[in-house]
Simulated assay, not measured.
Amino acid sequence: MDWLQAIVLGIVQGLTEFLPISSSAHVSIVGQLLFDGRDPGAAFTAVTQLGTETAVLVYFRKDIWRIITHWIGSLRGTVEKGDPDARMGWLVIIGSVPIVVLGLLFQDAIDTTLRNLWITVAMLAGVALVLAAADRFGERNTKDLRQLSWRDGILLGLFQAAALIPGVSRSGATISGGLFLGFNREAAARYAFLLAVPAVFGSGLYKLKDIGDDTAATWGPTIVATILAFVIGYAVIAWLLRYISTHSFRIFVVYRLVIAAIVAVLILTGVLSA
């Protein structure tokens, strides 16, 4: 991987991580176009996601600090057990369990078989239809994060775990789940961002050991890509939260279907190898 390729992939990661269009799919597809058919790899994807998740930490720093301190306070007995922020801490922990367990159980498949582009095409198109249905279902949703239950946390954790398959989209799956459970768009998006932090940092830190072992992912370019992902990801978070307060997810549904069709054509014509 050269520096220009890393810059492009860092920009792609930052632009797509928080939009419900699957960053892993875009990094894989663009990476193969840049690398003459070679996937940049699961390690590179996981590590560059550290940049976008750091953007979440910075953007939601006040919320995250309050959640952490209140959660610790509830353990010490200085904060009531029913405190909303302490409860949110537990909900993020519980919601993170499914993706951790499934990620470890199916690690080999995630790194190899599930990166097949035909699977990515199917997920891009299939989840587009799920997102469209969820968006329509949730048009008049009024529930906010104060009404998030333990059952909701576990179910949304399962939705997030589906994003282990490239093409699904972590934010797209979790937001769709939130809409189906009655939460408004902004609440579903905020919880999706918070829920992703432990899983993505865990995955990225775990994959750090693989950088340098694969010729497609070397340290220098990976660091540059990660920094770019952070800067652009921060801007995308701010834009998306404003956008969904007054708009539906229809544009992302159409985009996913168009990209799925384009990738299918590129595979069939031999431009990309599945």
Rank of each mutant, 00 (worst) to 15 (best):
W150N: 15
Y191Q: 08
L145W: 07
V130N: 01
A134K: 07
L148H: 07
R140N: 15
P166C: 08
R136V: 14
G204R: 00
L124W: 05
A128I: 05
G153C: 10
F159M: 10
L194W: 03
N184H: 14
D144P: 12
D210N: 12
V197I: 09
T142F: 07
G157H: 00
L158N: 12
S203E: 12
L158S: 08
S203N: 13
S203H: 10
D214N: 13
D214V: 12
G157R: 14
A128P: 00
A132T: 06
D214Y: 07
T174S: 03
R190N: 13
A134Q: 06
L208I: 14
E186A: 13
L164F: 02
L195R: 02
L158M: 13
A187Q: 02
A125C: 14
R185E: 07
S171N: 13
G172W: 01
L195T: 11
L145E: 13
L194H: 05
D144Q: 12
S171P: 11
T215A: 15
D144S: 15
P198E: 05
A173H: 00
E186H: 11
R185F: 05
R190V: 02
V200Y: 00
G157K: 08
A133V: 06
A189N: 03
K207C: 04
A216G: 05
I211S: 05
G182P: 13
R190T: 08
L124N: 04
L194A: 05
A196H: 03
S203G: 14
A217I: 10
G138R: 00
P166S: 09
L145K: 15
D144E: 15
A188C: 01
G178I: 02
L205Q: 07
A187C: 06
G212V: 09
A196N: 06
T174N: 03
A196W: 00
M123V: 10
L129G: 11
A192M: 09
A134F: 00
A188M: 08
L129C: 08
N141K: 01
